[in-house]
């Protein structure tokens, strides 16, 4: 593996097929701006400021989020690199993700944004051959520490996937599954309450209240995705990760999900990966732009979209590539 500083001028080696969760990628396209000097670009792009989080401790921040009062830092990632076998999919990403905020990850396919998302609930552990280096602190605790049970972590960090994936069980069972396996309830009525509250919060209650015991897979795509969100919030997580939650949905269903995300923002730390820049602009307060496995730029959504610091960001958001 070549060191990242020595990558070829067309910038390909960072973007070679790396993230198995994302299929098509940029191929050998020569990127505008890629011929500019690239050495240690990612680390020097942003002004180095004192860390927002007090949890960083001995790890020197390579990239620091600009101090924008969107909420206290919930997750602090430091120098995260991910390898799938011999291929490196993510290069030294450092990012602070604030609480009670929607943070969106944008970037072309295969740029590592989903990979980074999956680091935050250790879903990469489930892929054989995947290796994560670096440190992710959630509320100051290293989630990759040996003492942390990924099962318990995932109860705190819910995840919603690109394709709605309700369990082939009833709507009720879908929502009740999480609380049941984590032993959150002791009685049937308590469970009924959790199911109702979760479905209400996901904005699905009115549509399914009379058919809770019919199959969850019988719902429409948008309803299924909201069911999956209800399932995720039923265990009362602190963070919700969404991996392109609307890419399989029509515009109306998408609008409903976006509305829902905006409502959920008040209670949860939400991270959303999206291919739609319009969506990122609509739902998120913070945006991070990934390219070829690197975090190129991050900051307030408004700033990223109106006044990006990076040439590549500008090219991407104006649709010149990706």
């Amino acid at each position: 593996m070549k060191l990242p500083f020595f990558r070829s001028p067309d910038g390909r080696e960072g973007g070679t097929p790396a993230d198995p969760t994302e299929a098509p990628r940029m191929g050998g396209q020569v990127l505008p701006g890629a011929d500019a000097p690239l050495d240690r670009r990612d680390e020097t792009v942003l002004p180095t400021e004192p860390a927002v989080s007090d949890a960083q401790g001995e790890v020197p921040p390579t990239v620091t989020a600009p101090a924008v009062p969107v909420g206290p830092t919930k997750i602090a990632a430091r120098d995260i690199s991910v390898f799938y076998g011999d291929k490196q999919a993510l290069y030294d990403v450092s990012l602070d993700i604030p609480d009670k905020t929607v943070t969106s990850f944008i970037g072309p396919s295969g740029c590592g944004k989903s990979t980074f998302l999956r680091c935050m609930n250790r879903m990469n552990d489930t892929i054989q051959g995947a290796r994560v280096t670096g440190q992710i602190l959630m509320d100051g605790d290293d989630i990759n520490a040996r003492s942390v049970d990924p099962v318990l972590l995932r109860a705190q960090v819910g995840m919603v996937f690109q394709k709605p994936n309700p369990f082939p069980k009833t709507i009720y069972e879908n929502v009740a599954y999480g609380p049941r396996i984590h032993g959150l309830t002791s009685s049937k009525s308590e469970m009924d309450g959790i199911v109702e509250v979760s479905l209400k919060r996901a904005g699905l209650w009115d549509e399914v209240a009379d058919r809770l015991h019919s199959a969850g897979t019988g719902l429409s795509g948008g309803q299924q995705q909201r069911l999956v969100i209800a399932r995720a919030i039923a265990v009362n997580p602190e963070v919700i990760l969404m991996d392109e939650p609307c890419s399989a949905l029509d515009p109306i269903a998408t609008a409903k999900i976006e509305e829902l995300i905006d409502e959920l923002r008040e209670q949860y730390c939400i991270v959303i990966v999206t291919h739609s820049m319009a969506q990122a602009a609509r739902v998120s307060q913070r945006t991070a732009f990934f390219h070829l496995g690197r975090l190129v730029e991050h900051g307030d959504t408004e700033e990223i979209f109106t006044n990006p610091r990076e040439r590549r960001t500008l090219d991407y958001i104006t649709g010149r590539f990706g």
């Binding site: 879903m123 972590l153 995932r154 109860a155 994936n165 369990f167 999480g178 999956v228 399932r231 265990v235």
Partner: peptide
Amino acid sequence: VPPSIREAALAMGASRTQTVFHHVLPL
């Protein structure tokens, strides 16, 4: 069994054993 079901269960905080015996094997 579609991997999405496995991912869904794992992301819900089900252990590997729970994922297999609650979801994958029944399917």
